[in-house]
Amino acid sequence: MVDTDVTILIAEDDDGQADLIDRNLRRTGLTNRFIRFHDGQEILDFMLGDGDGAHREPDQRYLLLLDIRMPKIDGIEVLRRLKAAPEARKMPVIVVTTSDDPQDVAQCRELGCSHYITKPVEYHGFVHAIRQLGLLLSAVDVPRIAAPRGGTVLQGRA
């Protein structure tokens, strides 16, 4: 089982899906803290210290469950920017998406996602996949990462 002090971040635009992921992961015995993000912008702001919302805490261990098709900034762009940030790049990212487009899979792997899980658009398959995810989480090494350095990373990209 993944360490209980790891905070699980869920970036998923569909409320129902996020909730189902949350509930089914808890049924596997997870007691970790979950934080939900509705789009790509929210998760980037949180991780990279931008915007007015909440930001990540220093020395906290995070793990991100990332959907690809999201409004504003999609999952692939989020992954690209996170992996380009000196500290945030250490955080394990598990892509959880309905897309089984080989191009998406290849791109996510290239960008450095830890795992790629296709959510079946069928309930039982979905539940099974999330349970598998619960098991997988225990095998992921989640490092501590240092405090964010404000917007420097994004500016560096622009």
């Binding site: 129902g16 189902l20 509930r23 658009v121 979905f126």
Partner: peptide
């Protein structure tokens, strides 16, 4: 097949819930 199935899965999932 995709966009309609995703909310459909929610309906199915939450009726199980």
């Amino acid at each position: 097949s995709h966009d309609l199935r995703s909310p459909l899965m929610n309906v199915q999932g939450f009726s199980h819930e």
